[in-house]
Design a protein around this nucleic acid. Sequence first.
DNA 1: TCGAATGCTATTGTATACAAATGTCCGAGG
DNA 2: CCTCGGACATTTGTATACAATAGCATTCGA
Lengths: 225, 225
Amino acid sequence: MSRASDRAYEAIRSMILSGELPAGAQLAEEALAERCGVSRTPVREALRRLESDLLVTRTDTQRSFVADWSIDDVADAFELRAMLEGKAARRAAERMTDAALDRIRGANRRIAEAVGRPVADVVGFLEGNRDFHAVILEVAGSRRLAALLSTLIEQPVVWRTAHQYGREALRRSHGEHEELIAAFARRDGAWAEAIMTGHILRAYHAYADAHRGLAEQGLVREAAE
Amino acid sequence: MSRASDRAYEAIRSMILSGELPAGAQLAEEALAERCGVSRTPVREALRRLESDLLVTRTDTQRSFVADWSIDDVADAFELRAMLEGKAARRAAERMTDAALDRIRGANRRIAEAVGRPVADVVGFLEGNRDFHAVILEVAGSRRLAALLSTLIEQPVVWRTAHQYGREALRRSHGEHEELIAAFARRDGAWAEAIMTGHILRAYHAYADAHRGLAEQGLVREAAE
DNA sequence: TCGAATGCTATTGTATACAAATGTCCGAGG
DNA sequence: CCTCGGACATTTGTATACAATAGCATTCGA
């Protein structure tokens, strides 16, 4: 962790994910440097990283803006993610160890707890979910696959609408994870791939439905205006 | 094209691809800056880009080295590339236009010419091949897919052994391209995907065979020592 | 009134200086 | 002979100054 540039990266990233910096906003290095309390050099580095994460775009004249994800972009990203995570699940099933399986079970147990709370703990759910998928990716054992997926997993729109998911959707997610665990326990790669692909695509449609609902209420574009 | 940093990127990249900078060599910013005739700042930027291309790795203490691609890494990359390019071919077939089809045919015609020369023109082949795949990716119309694939297409080991391919392998490649064109002409996504996946995997095995041959002659590792 | 040229401002690109961190090597002590 | 420290050399991180370039608005001419 090289202090300043990582701090800048985290700071800008969270400003984008939270919507504090709305889609289309210009990202001037000097202004960001001041807001992050560092100089332009680490900010520049952070912007390049965010650009490769596709959270930031640059015009042909090198000016940076918060990326504006259209509905099609999100669909595109989910489609690719479904394919790649499916692949990861297949590889993971074929290489699964008992120790890793325990960690995956633990993550899903934490998810169950978060969902079971009197008031569903969405942040807890997201954390458990992240761990669950991270262990699978680790067991899949492909640096490249991990690198490719890392640019697809965190999208601002999704992040901001995750809280719209109902308890039912969270519970269904937990159930699909249980099925994945069964596939892993049997080391059945094809099964794991099928479930994972469906799991991601279902998550996409849950997002799309929630987003459509918001759009009808005129609640989505406000941040960009 | 921001002059200095792009020059540094191209310069370092070609030094790696050509083997002038062997796998495992340390990349000190100052030394590279001097070799490229620029200051450290653009070199740093170039190194970050090369790192995201997986041509350069960094230790936990932030020192950069030319990435060392093991056989497994290469297999891994080809496997992913086969999947992603297959997907791209499917999408391209579904969205193909007559104009794009003409460009694809033109690229394959240039490949045929390069292969047909008295002495096979490998550089011409590679250029035509690049165009061929680039148009498909363009028609597929997924920025994300293009971004993911860009980190997989150019690998130093492959680059250096491409010249080992025999004329027969080049001709077979051309033939597979013709079949792809047929699938595109019929807008048959499933067909295009199947052929493309096979095309990439065949290329992988051609590479693996050539590489194995070199290894037996003890000709591969010399650059790393 | 419209369009093009021009000067001003904002923003990014590059170089360089210095600080912080890492690696290396050699000597003292066990 | 090995290991543990510590000084020195290398390398990377950050800040800042300055240069180059793009954007913008205003004005001048037709």
